[in-house]
């Protein structure tokens, strides 16, 4: 089959199935979060009530935006401490059949912030670093709680738009509990069972050794005393050749973690190879289901938004903007990868698609998934805040690698992470109506609320915080020895590796250009700080807007009111997103993937 046709069919089937779930799931989420009596709440109600009683919480007690933010910060701050302690103490804790030692302090800090902030950036290899207890009681628990935090914040922000003359935006503890109990847990149980039925493993066995048929030779990178990779005079990594005929097969409770990894747009793999590992993602069906699970909640939240503000057309308009960005950039990723590498083609390597191969640039990709399913996964995982990978992003063509970079740098809002996607695009909607208001000389309004100075200041904090962290972090890293030491490919691609790392960390994605050796004190601290501030400062600004909007009176719709559910508004929204993204990041992108592309063209 023609690869373009194959990709188009895959993309269409994917979008049809996802969009078919938007309305029912969006309605279900709205019902659960607003306390509607549905089947899930009847079943889970006693557990929910018990949790409130044990924790001394009154779910009906409403919170101002600042109380909501402080509760959210307290909960997540404690989450960091617990996860840090679990890693540092794992050698003395149960469920550690490999007797893995305590994780280093800098890596524990990085991983704790990473999983609490829904980033799931992994500087370590899970199977050789973390015990089953830490994977389950630490990482998997935070997979649920960080995603639930995202949904809670999103619902609070939606209430800010939906309510009027109100000083409160809901109760964080109730929102957190409901999103975990009624949204994430049931979906995760179902998906975990389906994944297990397809071959994703779920056990507590010790790792198994298998003797390979052939002796394998590999290059072992050498590290200095500080853990940084050693380099020769030319700046290339120093490696030592080694051989083995033993392959260790890691085991573990993977299926249960895999489900929430995707549904919560977390992305942290049980194994280092993430969803490229056959125990995490064994078949094309699991690959499809994992992509579906990543985007379904973020897309559905647009309908939840529409329902909660009383006009579902508003939600469809946001979804339309998300879809335009998503489809356009997915197509670029596919075209770039399917075209292959001209330098390899010049050496006589066949990169043409046929019945026997996918063709194109297959470096870093699984042959069982091919170009189409890999390119779609690349877009899915970076259009959300997931960061799970089934292909190695560092091996993408320059323009193929540009796509995940841009998707992250635009703020991951097409459709974005669980919860984060909807509130991120709402911040751009606020900006969009503000720009429109400036153009026509009217006070900007959105959903019957005047957008005034305070909202614009908060939207500015929201929109500028992340780019500042990305660009400042990248600049510091390329100017200091510890930052440059991690680069695997000196030159523009090395710059891209660092830019990608900070784009991923600050936008809470977690995927990486894996050539960067990031498990060093410098990167563990720098990306740890980027993940925390990239997650929680925008959330605080968003909640502040929610609190301000909730307190406002609703303005009646008049002939002068700009409709925010039609193509004009969608175009305005897309224009705002692209304008901010382009102005902010094009200079940096020009130094990395763009110049790398031109170098490739020149070399050809």
């Amino acid at each position: 089959m023609n690869p373009t046709v194959q990709f188009s069919l895959l993309l269409c089937a994917f979008l049809v199935i996802v969009l078919a779930c938007v309305k029912p799931l969006g309605r279900y989420i709205a019902g659960c979060m607003d306390g509607e009596a549905n089947l899930a709440r009847r079943i889970g109600g006693p557990v929910e009530g018990l949790l409130y009683r044990v924790c001394g919480i009154d779910p009906a007690e409403e919170m101002s935006w600042s109380r909501y933010a402080l509760a959210m910060l307290l909960f997540n701050g404690l989450g960091v401490l617990v996860l840090y302690a679990l890693q540092r103490l794992q050698v003395w804790l149960p469920l550690n059949p490999q007797h893995l030692p305590a994780v280093s302090a800098d890596s524990s800090f990085n991983t704790a912030v990473s999983f609490v902030s829904n980033t799931n950036w992994q500087g370590y290899a899970g199977e050789s670093t973390l015990s089953y207890l830490v994977q389950m009681a630490g990482l998997a628990v935070q997979n649920f709680l960080s995603a639930a935090t995202g949904i809670a914040v999103a619902v609070a922000v939606i209430r800010g738009f939906a309510r009027h003359s109100s000083r409160t935006i809901g109760n964080f503890w109730a929102d957190l509990t409901r999103s975990t109990l009624y949204v994430l847990l049931p979906l995760s149980v179902v998906l975990a069972l389906v994944l297990a039925s397809q071959g994703v493993i779920q056990n507590f066995d010790a790792y198994r050794d298998a003797k390979t048929l052939e002796v394998q030779t590999y290059q072992n990178p050498q590290l200095d005393a500080a853990g940084n990779p050693l380099r020769d005079a030319a700046g290339n990594a120093v490696t030592v050749s080694a051989t083995t005929q033993t392959q260790t097969l890691p085991m573990g409770p993977v299926a249960s973690q895999e489900a929430i990894k995707e549904l919560g747009t977390n992305g942290g793999g049980f194994f280092n190879a993430n969803s490229a590992h056959p125990y995490e993602n064994p078949t094309p069906l699991t690959n499809f289901l994992e992509m579906f699970a990543i985007v379904v909640i973020p897309f559905a939240l647009t309908y939840t938004f529409g329902l909660m503000v009383g006009d579902t057309r508003q939600g469809w308009a946001l979804l339309a903007a998300m879809l335009v960005l998503f489809v356009a950039l997915t197509a670029v990723a596919f075209r770039s990868e399917q075209a292959g590498n001209p330098l390899i083609a010049a050496q006589g390597v066949d990169q043409v698609a046929s019945d026997l191969q996918s063709g194109g640039n297959m470096e870093g990709k699984e042959t069982r998934f091919g170009i189409a399913a890999s390119a779609l996964f690349v877009a899915v995982t970076t259009a959300t805040s997931c960061g799970a990978v089934n292909t190695m992003h560092d091996s993408l063509m320059p323009l193929g690698g540009l796509v995940p970079l841009i998707l992250m740098q635009l703020g991951e809002l097409a459709p974005g992470g669980v919860g984060t996607g909807i509130y991120s695009i709402l911040m751009f909607a606020v900006l969009g109506v503000f720009i429109a208001g400036l153009m026509i000389g009217r006070t900007p309004e959105y959903l019957g609320k005047k957008i005034e100075a305070f909202e614009m200041k908060m939207a500015s904090v929201f929109i500028l915080t992340t780019p500042f962290i990305v660009l400042f972090g990248t600049a510091v890293a390329v100017m200091c020895t510890a930052g440059v030491a991690g680069i695997a490919n000196p030159g523009p691609h090395g710059f891209s590796e660092i830019l990608y790392a900070f784009s991923s960390a600050a936008n809470n994605n977690g995927s990486a250009f894996g050539g960067l050796s990031a498990n060093t004190p410098f990167y563990n601290i720098a990306t740890g700080l980027a993940m925390w501030f990239g997650r929680f400062w925008p959330i605080v600004a968003t909640l502040a807007i929610a609190g301000s909007l909730a307190a406002k009176k609703r303005i009646p719709v008049t002939e002068g009111t700009m409709p925010t559910h039609g193509p004009l508004f969608v175009s305005l929204l897309l224009g705002s997103i692209l304008l901010i993204g382009v102005l902010t990041y094009v200079p940096a992108l020009a130094l990395g993937p763009i110049v790398e592309h031109f170098m490739l063209v020149a070399a050809r």
Partner: peptide, 30 residues
């Protein structure tokens, strides 16, 4: 070593709580 990283956690936490306080002051009592 742990004290350094736990101190860092406390630092970023307090800075974010400070942001809540500052934005709340900017807006006025909520």
């Amino acid at each position: 070593m742990d004290a350094v990283y736990l101190g860092m956690v406390a630092g970023v936490y307090l800075l974010t709580v400070g942001l809540v306080w500052a934005l709340n002051r900017l807006r006025g009592p909520s």
